[in-house]
Design a protein around this nucleic acid. Structure first.
Length: 803
RNA sequence: GCGGGUGUGGCGGAAUUGGCAGACGCGCUAGAUUUAGGUUCUAGUGUCCGAAGGACGUAAGGGUUCAAAUCCCUUCACCCGUACCA
């Protein structure tokens, strides 16, 4: 009887569900293991074959850990706030809530069809008020500690749509929907002070087991650099300009200054004669996109303000220019320019004929800036020192004279936390008529997102919530009028702490019980796409550290071991996309081949982190292997085969124990492709054997169960058991069976293989050399040459060097 | 440009304290089973020359070593991140 995946997969999914097989256990005698997937945004498109790749990986580990005697927490939930639902609502007038609910149902159906061992009793949904109550609670705690504040930040405003659009909705300066013009408009927005945690976010990367490239991306994103702040006085004015520099040692070479066109002092210091050109340049810069200002513009531009500053170290007057090569958003928005030792300053000085004074010996200022190390020149008290020493001495001098200090600067900026959207967590803030801003009292949380029959643009920079007068307008007990914050939180908010809620999802008193968090955190294995390498993972780490500081969570880091799965490409080696017509739908695969085949195939394709094209033949190859396993154990009548026996003639002993070892180690290391290959080798050997010890067949079924759980449950039943194998003990191996008594030693002549010796394990060097020399074929290649040297590595190789 | 990574048969890949390159799977070839197709089973399958047996071969070039896919240097290609970060 051939294997029928339709029947068997449904049968076991029903069994698992009805028996609550995957409920998280809390046995105090067992160790805990937390295996987590990055929870998905339930899009209307449904599941993509890329989703199950990461999900299968964590599921395999979760299932193995259960069998190894751990309590396993393996949950799933929904990151369900987000732009698509809002856009859908705006377009159709439908409610994002019911739309989202429908999508979640579809996602859940698809996920369950793949046989993942999630504990659905812990399902969470970021749009559920009982969940976002705690998202709001965290915001309030941050506000109370000064980590949430308001600032004036420009947004993309579309007058035609009457709404603010996100960066990803702006294409070539026009709205994605309708192609209307977009203008930058300043608006008061909420910010979170992630920069206060910059050093810890950087340093604690050393505590965690993450891919080096992800750590490196986070380091670059934080962008810590050490240097000095230096204050320049503006000539004939009370104003001063502060700059940040990593090379304070080159201060004697600073021959001009440059400010960003947007710098607040520009208008103030610009002289009357220069007003017009400066204004014109500012306008031009304001209309250029960021891309124009950087990528497309390698040629330096700028104008002189007419003002001068005093170089604090030598009293020289230097001109102040503005140029868009200086970014308002980095450092202080102004720089001291040292053209002799900075490539950008050099290009600018060349173009505008500004003086170039070398202060570090080594380069030739006629050709290029010299950025290397060397001895200082033209630098009075620094002359003769090298770079490091010069920096040190200059900082001391600056501090002594109160014109500067050592400073650390970050590229990381504070987190823009508000969105002008309906479909997000309301920010629990009230703005009162007397100017006071207060939090919604904690006991009134959650602040529920009000339902509305029709989500429509507010017509202003505010979110659609501004339309809901009953909700927006509030009056306190003294009759003071107030207005609720109409901004909502970004999607990142709910995903910055969801892994904590899984630990204790129904808690009404706290976001999660501290002792339970202590038992489960940090997450032991976290798998998801590389696209979250920076933002999600940095935000989540930031919130976690904050919660750690206020005593809510017990660990400084949330995710101990992180892994990024690769992408599954279309059969044509291109990224799957509707427009390319190369998308594979998991529903179709499950229908045709079964979930076990999909899981096996995705794990066998190659290393988990590689991007590999889909192959229909590869997929049916996976099914063929599963069929082979089935036929190995079950006959045409659906009965256990006769050759599965309690007797063991020993032919499979070594390969079985090797397989148990390799599969166990490979699963642990997430090397699923090689684990599967080892099981294939074992099955090939077993197919040739006369008798199959029942112990080994049970072992094989258990080893394969994490990958192909439905068929293995069925085979486990064929082998005479009547309960799930979920909690059966994981197979073990015995070292003594791994070692073969006879080994093959290769014989080389001058590094080329010329013969093989079958000898007893640990045959000594002398004997091996003698045997090698005696080999006829070897002798032929040695011929009349003199043997100069013989290298013998027992159990491995003999290399005869002859000339 | 900078930072990180990768480069192995027709394809996906395996082998990393340096020790038989190509495990395993796909595809392909031949044979068996089948009315036939599919399935299944057996054998073969890096390239070149051949009867045995050789020579060559891990992006390209060079080096270290008894021995290099693996270590070192140079170059090239592709992928990911980033974008004048002072």
């Amino acid at each position: 009887m051939t294997y029928n995946h339709h029947v068997v997969e449904k049968k076991w999914q029903k069994y698992w569900h009805e028996h609550n097989v995957f409920n998280t256990t809390n046995d105090p005698n067992k160790e805990n293991f937390y295996a987590l997937d990055m929870f998905p945004y339930p899009s209307g498109q449904g599941l993509h074959v890329g989703h199950p790749e990461g999900y299968t990986a964590t599921d395999i580990v979760a299932r193995m850990k259960r069998m190894q005697g751990y309590n396993v927490l393996h949950p799933m939930g929904w990151d369900a706030f987000g732009l698509p639902a809002e856009q859908y609502a705006l377009k159709t007038g439908h409610d994002p809530k019911s739309f989202t609910k429908k999508n979640i149902e579809n996602f859940k159906r698809q996920i369950n069809a793949l046989g993942f061992s999630y504990d659905w009793n812990r399902e969470i949904n970021t749009t559920d008020p009982s969940y976002y109550k705690w998202t709001q609670w965290i915001f309030e705690r941050m506000y109370q500690r000064g980590l949430a504040y308001e600032a004036e930040v420009p947004v993309n405003w579309s007058p035609d749509l009457g709404t603010v659009v996100a960066n990803e909705e702006v294409i070539d300066g026009k709205t994605e929907r309708g192609g209307f013009p977009v203008v930058r408009k300043p608006m008061r927005q909420w910010m979170l002070k992630i920069t206060a945690y910059a050093d810890r976010l950087l340093d604690d990367l050393d505590l965690i087991d993450w891919p080096e490239n992800v750590k490196e991306m986070q380091r670059n994103w934080i962008g810590r650099s050490e240097g000095a702040a230096v204050t320049f006085k503006v000539v004939d004015s009370e104003d001063t300009i502060e700059v940040f520099t990593t090379r304070p040692d080159t201060l004697f070479g600073a021959t001009y200054m440059v400010m960003a066109p947007e710098h607040e002092l520009v208008d103030k210091i610009t002289t009357a004669e220069q007003k017009q050109v400066v204004k014109a340049y500012q306008d031009e810069a304001a209309h250029k996109s960021d891309l124009d200002r950087t990528d497309l513009n390698k040629d330096k531009t700028g104008v002189f303000t007419g003002a001068y500053a005093v170089n604090p170290v030598n009293g020289k007057q230097i001109p102040i220019w503005i140029s868009d090569y200086v970014l308002a958003s980095y450092g202080t928005g102004a720089i001291m320019a040292v053209p002799a030792h900075d490539d950008r300053d050099f290009a600018f000085a060349k173009k505008f004929d500004l003086p170039i004074i070398p202060v570090v010996d080594g380069g030739n200022v006629a050709d290029a800036a010299f950025t290397g190390d060397g001895l200082h020149i033209n630098s009075e008290f620094l002359d003769g020192t090298n770079k490091d020493e010069g920096i040190h001495k200059m900082i001391a001098w600056l501090e002594d004279h109160h014109v500067g200090a050592k400073k650390v600067n970050y590229r990381l900026r504070d987190w823009l936390f508000s969105r002008q959207r309906y479909w997000g967590e309301p920010i629990p803030i009230i703005h009162w008529e007397d100017g006071e801003t207060t939090l919604v009292p904690e006991e009134e949380l959650p602040l529920i997102l009000p339902e509305t029959p029709d989500v429509k643009p507010s017509g202003s920079v505010e979110s659609p919530l501004a339309n809901l007068d009953d909700w927006v307008n509030v009056v306190d007990k003294n009759g003071r009028k107030g207005r609720r914050e109409t901004n909502t939180m970004p999607q990142w908010a709910g995903s910055s702490w969801y892994f904590l809620r899984f630990v204790d999802p129904h808690n009404k008193e706290a976001l999660a019980d501290y002792d339970k968090l202590k038992a489960w955190m940090p997450v032991d294995l976290y798998i998801g796409g590389a696209e979250h390498a920076v933002l999600h993972l940095l935000y989540a780490r930031f919130w976690h550290k904050f919660l750690y500081d206020i005593g809510v969570v017990p660990t400084p880091e949330p995710f101990q071991h992180l892994f990024n799965q690769g992408m599954i490409l279309g059969a044509n080696h291109e990224k799957m996309s509707k427009s390319k017509g190369n998308v594979v739908n998991p529903d179709d695969v499950v229908e045709q081949f079964g979930a076990d085949t999909l899981r096996l195939y995705e794990m066998f394709m190659g290393p988990l982190d590689a991007s590999i094209p889909w192959s229909e033949e590869g997929l049916s190859g996976a099914r063929k292997f599963l069929d082979r396993v089935w036929r190995l154990i079950v006959d045409d009548q659906g009965k256990l085969r006769d050759h599965v026996t309690t007797e063991n003639d020993g032919t499979l002993t070594t390969i079985y124990h090797q397989t148990v070892k390799k599969v166990t180690e490979d699963f642990e290391a997430l090397h699923f492709n090689t684990a599967i290959s080892q099981m294939m080798v074992f099955v090939n050997e077993a197919s040739k054997a006369d008798a199959l010890p029942v112990e080994y067949m049970e072992g094989l079924v258990k080893l394969l169960a994490p990958i192909a759980p439905h068929m293995m449950e069925e085979l486990w039943q064929e082998l005479g058991h009547d309960e799930t194998l979920t909690y059966e003990p994981w197979p073990t191996y015995d070292e003594q069976y791994l070692i073969e008594d006879e080994v093959e030693v290769i014989v080389q002549v001058n590094g080329k293989v010329r013969g093989h010796l079958k000898v007893a394990r640990d045959t000594d060097k002398v004997k091996l050399e003698a045997l090698a020399r005696a080999d006829e074929h070897v002798q032929k290649f040695v011929g009349t040459q003199t043997i100069r040297k013989v290298i013998v590595v027992p159990n491995k190789i003999v290399n005869i060097v002859a000339k």
